[in-house]
Design a protein around this nucleic acid. Sequence first.
DNA 1: TCGCTCCCTTGAACGTTCAT
DNA 2: ATGAACGTTCAAGGGAGCGA
Length: 667
Amino acid sequence: MSKKKNKDILESISKENYLRLTKEAIVASMLKQEVAGQRVFYVFLKQKGYKEITPESMDKHQSDGIVGNTIIECKLNENEGGGPKKAYQELYGIIPNRLKGKGERLPYYRIYVELETFLVEVYDCHCNLVDTFDWFSDSHKFDKYFNDKKNTYEYDLVDENVDLVEVIQNIYKVFPIKTKIEAYKHLQDGVVGWFQPFDFKHLNINRLILNNDKMNEKYVQKTEGAYFTPSQYVKISTQYVMNAIEQSKRDGYDDYVIVDRCAGVGNLESQFPEEVYPHLILGTINEAEALTANIRFNDLADVVVIDALTQNGVDYYKIEIEKYKTKNNVNKLAVIFLENPPYAQLNSNKDGGVNYKAKKKYIKTWVHKQMKNGGEDLDEQFVFSAYNYYSVYSYVHYGPIKIWKTNHLVNKEVKEAYLCNRKFFNAGESAIALIHWTNKEVFYETIEFDSDLGGKFPVHKVHKTISKLYNNDGKDNGICVVEARNFSFASPRLTGSLNDDERYGKKWVNKDNLLNALPLFCVCRDEIAEKGSISGEKDYRVIDTVYKTADGGTKYQKDKNFLQNCLLWSLCTHYNQCSTNSRIWNWGEEHLDESLKSNEIWLLYKELVSETGVNGLYNIEQYNKNGYGKLWREHTLYPKVIFLKKELQKFYVSKIRDDMFKYELLK
DNA sequence: TCGCTCCCTTGAACGTTCAT
DNA sequence: ATGAACGTTCAAGGGAGCGA
């Protein structure tokens, strides 16, 4: 809006007598300050019968005025908002570039509208004036350009600011297709009105492969479980494999093969020297990925499409290994597995995530059926089948540490181990173990990992869950429900809560056992184990490697100091969801040590309780005293609540956390 | 009952545009 | 330059339900 316009509006507002206006009229005049002109224009067109126009979304400041095959830019008059100069930049620079960056269609026509003078100028994409008319009397003329299909602008995918990955993802959106290979077909054929035919096989292979990894992020990742491994970690796993090869030579093996049953586009193998290619035995379940991988390996290695978790799949690799032996006349062959399998738990309730089970209609894979226990995660199935059906020399494997830490699925010698940061796999920050296992049986209690942060990071095996440390005393005797169950820190709200409404479970604890049970609630809410830090720099190595256990037994119950600290924290934290009338508040105050009652945390908490007349920080946060007005909470209550939360964090770290490790509640 | 994962909503933090 | 007013992104938190 021009200065003049705004000034006029502001002046007219100060002259206006609002007392005589209805509510509606006031709202109408408020709208005048903003983009009222455009709103009137688009509403007018809509009322003239242009159904594709939605004025509400089109007259916002930053929306691109795209209707059918046109981009529209409105100006009130030629002095407003930069006038024709600014309109030109928008129509031929800013909006097209934004669309290209998003990989979306580029309209052929550019329309400049001057609202006050009713002037409409229609240009083509080369800025040739095509038509001029009056939008009030000739509004039907827009129709021709909105719906024009014949004159189309095609842009080239080789263009710098075209994001090929976005184009492919838009192809997925626009056409009813499921696989990459179909998308590639569209690239090859071109799409009228969108882009020219693109010969991906000969024109820009490197870029295509590079982007293929990126493409896995959003679409294929979800449907096929095709995650890619970042190159800095591929470098390490490549070295691990080379080490295994060297070791096999020293052990008297004649030759080696490298098996990857989830090769995808061949990322894990991309850093091997070419002489390694003939030793590769690769498979993937996605046809388009196999196509791309075969381009990468230039016919020196063959990537086939096969599901490794079927009986056929298992046999296929057996046969391929045998074939290699026969063909190359090998006596003693070292079989090295190198894999980054999909990590997808199939017993999940939702149909999102890796779509594997949706395709298989909840049918267990053949490998899964062979497993006595576990195997809900595809990763476990890959690990299980590798060691069960093949005589593995070495297994270089990426995956969650649970296969060793809790499931005890692999108990083999560790040659080398590295903790990768999952954020580089395009997921949330956490630790993914890269381990070079041999086939020698070894039972470790601790594995030491290298990592991005340098030094050694130990991860300990766990045996018993904390749920073993207490029992259900029944609702009649119980003071509150303590939920304390699993090993991991996923969803701590659900599996580590304290409440009196049985919202997550029914494990009631009575007055005699509660003091001993509260540390189990506290450990479930260990912020550092869950998030990697309290604030600032995260230590990704902690996330998903530190678990809750009962391996230390009931020793912690003899430390009265520790129990008292946990009691104070449990009573004051907002994670305690007991209602204000719960018996826990009186019980807690009775049992809290006198020395802790002079602690700043307790004093502050009690102050909030007396101010609101409500028990529990969780309830205090929701407390609303209408008589004080809506801003009262912001000014009086929340600053104190925030301060108390910070003090509780500090208290947990300084007085509780170390003991959690000491008593092996954290491990 | 227990262990675990996935989807959805929020809102803080950061980005961008525009008028003064 | 500065700040209002949106727009965008992303992690945290809440909740549901599967399979053993």
